[in-house]
Every structure is written in C-alpha cells, then in structure tokens.
Design a protein around this nucleic acid. Structure first.
Lengths: 242, 242
DNA sequence: CGGGACGTTGACGCCCGTCAAGACATGTGG
DNA sequence: CCACATGTCTTGACGGGCGTCAACGTCCCG
C-alpha cells in the first residue's frame, strides 16, 4: 500500500555487520563520509528523497512519524552500529523522520554507491534481509504493547528492554540503566505522555522497584518486579508490589 | 532481540507473486498441498515450530498476538494471495498465531521444500525482500495509529484502507464495503473494544457518513468525510461533520 | 420456536491526557 | 559569584475518552 519501501535498521545490525568479511567492511568505510551533529537536530525528514544511508557511530538517535497536528510516535531508538535510511525501490522517499537525541557522529553513504555494493557483496544483502525479519517481529511486539498494555507495563518493558540492550555483552547484570533521552521521548516511544512516564517512575520508586533522581540514570532495585510487570503476569489488583 | 525471525506477508504479495515467471509458479504449485478450514479455526499457533509456509487461496484470516491474560492484538488480516509463516532462520518458531475469519482454503508448503526453492529461484527471494520492506513501513504506520489516533480516526482509517484494498483493480470507486470479520476482530485490529467500534459506526451513521445494518456490509455515503477523519485533518471540535 | 452468536445501546468508572504550578539543574552574562 | 532565563522533571487537580458491565434486540440455524 505505501508507495515507498524503506526502514530503519535496528540494533541487531551491529552484530550482523561484524559478521561480514573484512574486504566488504573496508569497501564500506572507503566510500563513506562522516557527519557530526549536536543534540536535537534532524537527520532525515519524512518525504524527502532518500539519497543517503546512515550508520550511527556515536550517540543516540530517534526515528519517528508525525501526524499533521503534531502528535508524534517514535518507532525506535538508534544506537551505535545501527543503520538508518535503507531503501529498496527507486522512487524512494523517506517514510519517517529521524533526529539526534544526544550529540551524534554518523557515517553517511551516497545511495548510488551503496547500491553498487549491494550487487557486489551478497553478504550485505543477506544481512539486511535477516535484519528486516527481526525488525518486523519487533514491530509486531510493539503493536501489541502500544495497543493493549497499560502505562505501567509499557514503562517496565522499556526499562527491561533498555537494560538488556545495555548489558549486551557484559556478563554481570546491570544495576543502573543509562537513559540519555528525555522523558518526552520515552513517552512518544511508548504512546504515553511525559507526565505519565514521570508518575509511573515515581510510583516504581515509592514501591522500591527503581531509584530515580540521578542525572540520566535509573537504578533498577528489583528487576524481577519489573520483569513481572512487563510480562503482565504480576497480581493485577494485588498487593505484591504495591 | 527476538530469537525468531519470521512474519506474515501482507497484501502486496499477491501482485508480486504474479510477477514471477511461470516456471517458478509451476514449481510452487507442484510441491504444495491444499488445506480447507471452517470459520474460526487456528491455522498456526505462536511458539509452535515453524514447519510450513501457507498461502491463502480463498477466504479471510487474521494474524495476532496474545498476552497471557487474553488481551489480543490482531497485527493484520490476510486475503487471497497473501502468505503466512515465512521464516529466515533455523530454530524458527512462529512468533504469532493465525486463525480463519471466514472459512478458508489454504495452500501449504513443507518448509524444507520451500527453502530448496529459495535457492533455485532468486526471484522468489527478491520478492520476499521487497514484500518485507512494505510490511515494515506499514507496521510503522500502524504503530502511529495504535499509539496516537483517536477511536474515530482508527475506525475511519480502517474503512478507508479496506475499501481501497477491495477496489484494488476496479475502476469505479466502491460504494459498499464488504466486511467479513466480526466487530470484535476489527476492535482487536484497531486496539479498541467491540462496543467502541459499534458506537463509532453508529455515530458515523447518525452523521450520514456510513450506512449500517446490512449483514457484513457497510455503505460509504460520504467518503471524503472518512478520508478527512482518518487523516486527522477535519475540524476537531468543529461542526463540519457533527 | 428456542438457543446461541453477534451487534446495539446505556450507565458508570477508571486510566491517562491536559493544564498548571513548582522544583531543580544548567548555562549565560553582568 | 549571583541574577536570570531556559529547559526538564515532578506533582497535583481535573476532565474526558474509552473500557467494563449489563440488558436488550436481531439474525441465523437447528
């Protein structure tokens, strides 16, 4: 139905890119440029012609869609190693916008050069295929979350997802979560408002589940409670975590 | 993040399959079996090992995910020509469930045979790649809808989307929309309840926008109003369509 | 005709959005 | 070093949109 066909590659792309052979990586770096942006700047704008592919090197960025009256939905956060702006057809426009959440350093490829690379290196194409399949299942999970989960379940899910991603590779479970985005961004990611995010975190704090008040950090004091709340398997009207 | 990687191919697959050359289609039909199911039966169940790929021949089916307490989100409706159950990795389980909305006739391929076909016919793989890219942009649109749009906007969107799909190929715009699914299914697709869907349609009826009461059909009397409501560009607190 | 599935309508309430005020941190210029 | 502006988070009060529960009507199919 949509006339365009492109998407933002998410987290798994990092590991997949490392699986490419060295010559492909060398070629990729060869034809790229570097772009540095301060916090809160647009990277791509929905509707613009898709001329470039980006890879985030340093920082955090958000991918989002807007309604005409300003309502916003962040469809994903990008971390170092993630790709942005891939397209698979010719008259492509970006189907979403993206902007920096923190100051960012991006690698940028002109689209034509990248398409040449797609033809030459079959591993690159296969990587994107697997990547897209993962993105799609994640998107279905997020539909369930946005449509059916309560505010508490959404915030708990966000914390669990973020800490898992942060702990990715570390052996010991993380105790404190680094959260560089503003509450308003988290809210737009979860389909809530900044006030509801704040209230929910305060409630978690009062119940001894998290520690708040630090700058850009949230302490996870009772991870099991968060897991249970996120899974929807905690006592709903019960007293367990109240 | 998710350990599986598969998805339900949506509507665009119909046209794409037709673009395959005849020998590939012949091969596809050769190795398939046919499966007939009455209304309301499960086709695949989330978590089961992904042993088969399905193609819907006749009827309408739904793809959905469930929360442990029964909350349900329908991620898409399948129409004749759509595919279901594709996977791209080895330890694959289905990441969603699917069931028949009407009585259905399905074509079924054993997974191993299909993977062989993937190797032999590069066009098939490319078709699925483009298909997935379309699915992904549609998924992002649906995230925006589920998180941010009002009940009225969602129902209007549903009607517009369905009538566009129904009119696909016809030259004259359709006046009446065929809706084989129950209100509860529409609600689970839109992140609402059956009562809210009913109330919204009644409101549209009272405002002269649709005609209701027919069995499995909805008459679209003022399509422009529906387009405006769906787009979020109608006068919000205004009197235009009240 | 009777039973079950589905749609409609009303009453009610709660979750979360909206609006607003205040707290707190940061940066900036004098 | 302080006054002030700015941006962000917190907390409260309030209201509305939509979910929940229930009763009723309608259609279909034995």
């Amino acid at each position: 139905m949509p006339p365009y066909a492109e998407f933002a590659v998410g987290t798994a792309a990092r590991r997949r890119l490392e699986a490419l052979d060295d010559s492909a990586i060398a070629r990729l770096e060869e034809i790229s440029r570097v772009l540095d942006l301060p916090q809160g700047r647009p990277i791509i704008i929905e509707g613009d012609p898709a001329m470039s592919l980006y890879s985030l090197q340093i920082g955090v960025a958000s991918v989002f869609k807007l309604l005409p009256d300003g309502r916003r939905q962040i469809t994903g956060f990008l971390y170092p190693g993630d790709f942005l702006g891939i397209t698979f057809n010719l008259n492509a426009e970006y189907g979403y916008s993206a902007e920096t959440v923190t100051s960012c350093s991006l690698r940028l490829w002109p689209r034509a050069a990248l398409e040449r690379l797609f033809e030459e290196a079959p591993g690159v194409r296969r990587m994107f295929l697997a990547e897209m399949a993962d993105e799609l299942t994640a998107a279905q999970d997020r539909m369930l979350t946005l449509a059916r989960r309560t505010a508490e379940e959404r915030v708990a899910m966000f914390l669990i997802t973020m800490v898992r991603r942060q702990a990715d590779g570390a052996e010991a479970p993380c105790e404190t979560l680094h959260v560089p985005m503003r509450w308003a961004d988290i809210a737009d990611y979860l389909g809530l408002t900044a006030e509801t995010v704040s209230r929910t975190l305060s409630s978690f704090r009062d119940r001894g589940i998290v520690r708040t008040g630090m700058r850009s950090e949230i302490g996870l004091r009772n991870r099991q409670a968060l897991e249970d709340i996120a899974a929807g398997t905690y006592a709903r009207n019960g007293e367990i975590y109240s």
